[in-house]
Each structure stands twice: as structure tokens, then as C-alpha cells.
Simulated scan of single mutants.
Amino acid sequence: MAKRIISTQEAPAALGFYSQATATDTTLYCSGQIGIRPDTGELEHGVEAQARQAFRNLEAVIAEADRSTAQVMKLTIFLASIDDFAVVNRVMGEFFEAPYPARSCLAVAALPKGALVEVEAIVDLAP
């Protein structure tokens, strides 16, 4: 199984030594996206705006692989504060419809660039 790199200018460039996503013939593994606007490189202000932008960024990476959020099998959400769960959950509902993907959501000590939320996904690429 050969590994392909998925990259788009519609999402922020990787902040380190990793790819926006890698793919096999059947699965897309998306790196975590935070709420950075790809056009300015700036982090959005507030958890709701950051969550919305993070999901937009994730959506752009998935679209580069010719898929949509409908093919997301597993979603992981990292929060700087678990108190933001309800807000981020509501924003997630703007990007996903039933049947929803499996999901984990956890609070972490810190996120890159002081972000409040980060999202990553595993996507089905099977025809």
C-alpha cells in the first residue's frame, strides 16, 4: 500500500514536520487542524470562531481528496478547556449530518499557537 500526501492551500500549511493528510488506497488520515485562517495565517478569536475555522480547514483537506465530511469515519476533537464542549459540539453539527462519525473529545494541557480547539479525522476513501 503506497502512501500519498494530500495538501491544499485552502487550509493552513503544516506547522512542523508533518503533512496535512496522508492516504492509502482506502483511508485518509487527516492531521489536526486548528482555527487558523489560511488566507491570513492568523488564529481566529474565541472558541466558537476557532472551532468553525478548524472544521472549515479539515473540510478543505478532505475535499482535496475528493471526499466530504459524510465519509468521515472517526473524528477526534482536542479542547484547551472541557468547558467548551457544548459550543464545539454545536459547531460540529454545522459540518456533519447523521449518520455521524465516531468521535472522541478530550481536554488537553495546551494546543499549538495557543489554540482553543483542534480537530483531526480518519476518512473512508473506498469507492
Rank of each mutant, 00 (worst) to 15 (best):
A60N: 12
A86P: 02
M1H: 15
Y18P: 13
A98I: 04
T76C: 11
E48C: 00
G114V: 06
M73Y: 15
R37Q: 11
R37P: 04
G46E: 02
F17M: 13
G93W: 05
D39L: 07
D124P: 13
A80G: 12
A121L: 00
T69K: 01
Q20F: 00
A110L: 06
H45I: 08
A80T: 11
R67W: 04
V47Y: 00
G46N: 03
N89V: 10
Q53I: 05
V119L: 05
F78H: 13
T40N: 08
E118M: 03
A109N: 11
M92I: 06
L58W: 06
A70F: 06
E48V: 02
T26R: 11
R52Y: 03
V108N: 08
E64A: 03
L75E: 00
R103V: 11
D39S: 13
G16K: 09
L15N: 13
R52S: 06
G114I: 09
Y100A: 09
P38Q: 03
A107F: 10
F78K: 12
E48R: 02
S7I: 05
D66H: 11
A13T: 12
A21H: 12
E48F: 04
I122R: 05
Q71N: 07
A109Y: 06
G46P: 03
C105E: 07
A14T: 14
P127H: 15
E48M: 01
E97Q: 12
A13D: 10
T24I: 12
T69D: 00
I122F: 08
G32F: 01
D25F: 13
I6D: 10
G35E: 07
V117S: 08
S19V: 11
H45A: 10
H45R: 10
L28T: 10
G46T: 00
A13Y: 11
S81D: 14
A60M: 08
Y29Q: 14
E42H: 10
S31I: 02
T8A: 02
G32Q: 01
A23L: 14
E64W: 03
P112M: 07
K113A: 11
I36A: 00
I82N: 09
L106C: 04
L106N: 10
F17Y: 13
L106Y: 08
E118W: 05
G41N: 13
F95T: 02
L15S: 14
G93S: 08
Y29I: 13
E42Q: 06
L116V: 12
I77H: 04
A11F: 02
M92G: 13
L58I: 01
S68K: 05
R37A: 09
N57R: 00
P101V: 03
S68I: 04
D25K: 15
Q33D: 00
F96W: 04
A70E: 00
V61P: 08
Q9N: 15
F96M: 07
D84K: 01
V87M: 05
A49V: 09
S104W: 05
E118F: 04
D66M: 11
P38G: 05
N89H: 14
C105M: 09
V123P: 14
S68N: 10
E120T: 15
V87G: 07
D83G: 09
D83M: 05
F95K: 00
A21V: 10
G114P: 09
T27S: 15
T24A: 15
Q33R: 01
L125W: 14
R56T: 01
E94G: 02
R90M: 03
M73C: 13
A2T: 15
